[in-house]
């Protein structure tokens, strides 16, 4: 049970910074690019350890993506970082044309995704990035749930050949993945199968999903929890198995309900395993300023909201 004792808490962006440094030690083809946010994205750790392999491109995200593409053609393994909204929004077409279309080995690791960016407000809170990255052919999309999974995901994308987008957050999050957990691209992790409904969550919402599960248990509802850390390629088998087993699905993501995890799961359900679905996420709205915790409640992204969604999904099943 992850929240029984004192779980360690680390921000996924901090785990990313550490992962980059150990990767830099192992491989000297690793290069890192940032756009004037290295302190925030934590690439500054790599910059300090390997100043010759770090390039600050300035506030020029489009230029940064193109430069990364060139470095990849030149045989390097570029990791590119900035806030999620700028990496995937500002530079979208550079990512499409110069990185994904030629299928280059560039790893985009964006931080400060979702509403838990907090006080900076809607202009800085990326709630569309999963959708706009997922839609590009060749792109792999990964949303780690905690620090340890981020470490493993960074190692995995370094081994993988091709463009990847990894989504990290600003705030500290509890460790949810079990100690013996091994991350694999495209493979969901099933915490428990559940009987009445299954919650498929990604990123920081996995912790909320586990809390919701425990709340529901007290009411006699057996909800399964699945960590869907790879959004693309989606683990279709895990979705179909959960739908077949439980007959009702809830998705939970710190992202718009349009086009992200909820969208991806809906596609699989509609085509292969029709079952009632309730999506937790931002309901076609931008973010706003406020403290991260308060915003999760404001947008209906808390454990209580997930629990309510599970009941709603179960009710749909019966009618």
């Amino acid at each position: 049970m992850f929240h029984g004792g004192n779980v360690s808490k680390i921000a996924t962006r901090d785990a990313y910074g550490d992962a980059l440094v150990s990767l830099g030690k192992k491989r000297n083809d690793v290069v890192v690019l940032d756009a004037d946010l290295s302190g925030s994205t934590k690439t500054a750790k790599f910059a300090k350890a390997f100043p010759d392999r770090f390039f600050n491109i300035g506030i020029a995200e489009q230029d940064m993506m193109g430069t990364a593409a060139g470095l990849a053609i030149g045989g390097k393994l570029p990791f590119v970082s900035t806030f999620a909204v700028f990496a995937t929004g500002r530079a979208w077409e550079q990512v499409r044309q110069s990185i994904c279309y030629p299928n280059l080995n560039v790893k985009i690791v964006a931080t400060h995704a979702g509403v838990t960016v907090g006080e900076d407000g809607g202009s800085h809170q990326s709630v569309e990035d999963i959708a706009v990255m997922r839609v590009i052919p060749h792109m792999t999309v990964i949303v780690p749930a905690d620090g340890p999974e981020t470490l493993q995901a960074i190692e995995a994308v370094a081994e993988y050949q091709g463009p990847c987008y990894v989504r990290a957050g600003r705030n500290k999050v509890p460790t949810v993945c079990p100690e013996n957990y091994r991350f694999r691209i495209g493979k969901a992790h099933v915490f428990n199968e559940g009987k009445h409904a299954a919650i498929i969550a990604t990123g920081i919402m996995v912790a909320e999903a586990l809390k919701a599960r425990d709340q529901l248990k007290a009411e006699g509802i057996d909800a399964g929890v699945i960590n869907m850390s790879t959004i693309k390629p989606l683990d279709r088998d895990a979705v179909i198995a959960a739908a077949t087993r439980c007959g009702a699905i809830v998705t939970a993501e710190e992202h718009s309900i349009i086009g992200g995890l909820g969208g991806a799961v809906a596609e699989v359900l509609a085509e292969s395993a029709p079952a009632p679905l309730v999506r937790i996420g931002l309901k076609d709205t931008f973010g706003t300023s406020g403290d991260g915790e308060g915003l999760l409640k404001h947008y209906g992204l808390s454990a209580g909201d997930i629990a309510a969604a599970v009941k709603e999904a179960i009710k749909k099943k019966k009618s």
């Binding site: 006080e119 900076d120 407000g121 809607g122 202009s123 800085h124 706003t288 300023s289």
Partner: peptide
């Protein structure tokens, strides 16, 4: 400034 519900967003809105 920067509180939930405020018109004074972190960046001008």
């Amino acid at each position: 400034l920067r509180k939930i519900g405020s018109r004074l967003q972190g960046h001008p809105d």
